[in-house]
Amino acid sequence: MATKHSRMSARLMISPAVLLLLGWMLIPLSMTLYFSFLRYNLLMPGMEEFTGLTNYRFFLTDPAFFAALWNTIALVVGVLVVTVIGGILLALLLDQPFFGQGIVRILVIAPFFVMPTVSALVWKNMFMNPVNGLFAHAAKALGLQPFDFLSSAPLASIIGIVSWQWLPFATLILLTALQSLDQEQLEAAEMDGAPWIKRFWYIMLPHLARAITVVILIQTIFLLSVFAEILVTTNGGPGTASTNLTYLIYMQSLLQFDVGGGSAGGVVAIILANIVAIFLMRMIGKNLDA
């Protein structure tokens, strides 16, 4: 049983972490909230004044906002579809017995460890470049016209790059979940003559449901904030074709120096992320009791 003394020292041991995170959360958050109600541009110092909801009105009625919102959703959903379906297929494959399992596993998870700026630049230049990229070389070898990925289909290209980075994460988690599946149950179903597709649909998929949910939620949190990949490939363009919310707010605050408008955008981004976060927190909280 914990004594009064040990409780005291326990509290003392937790407090640095709690206080730091509290400060990290509350100070910038309240500043963002405060700035969002101000007319505040770094190019016009000393002109700050309270403008109520003007920043929100401008931000939420800006056509760029709708484009960015749509691009954000397309990016998140696109990457989720590719990585979850690809991850399930890969996990099923890697779960089979074959020679060199360990090495293939290592090859498959490698992209996850490549920093975003490197993977985006490698894909942009060495693969997607319409003159010198490998895809262009391949197209020419087949007698086709090279395709300019990042100008003609910027968002789809970025979805491809980001999917490559996140496929290992989905695969690894789904594989881990798959390996915890009770083999006897599968063998029993097989002996009863259940075909593979039924075994997959009625036994494996329900078993994977939890892991799939976790993959979707965690990836969503990260995918809402994709930034570096856009910065080094398209700069959000052409026009706003590949601008997501994170990039729009970055442009508004650090390139146009509109602190007020950028902050209003920040508040909007926080609200959107929180909607996802609530679901994720519930999932994880449930597991904590178990």
Partner: peptide, 25 residues
């Protein structure tokens, strides 16, 4: 448990939401 969950929730904060204040600070 509440403390743990709360700590986790700070991770859900999109970085761009606090970009401006952190930059100015």
């Amino acid at each position: 448990k509440d403390v743990l969950m709360w700590m986790l929730s700070t991770k859900m904060l999109p970085p761009v939401g606090v970009l401006v204040p952190i930059y100015l600070l």
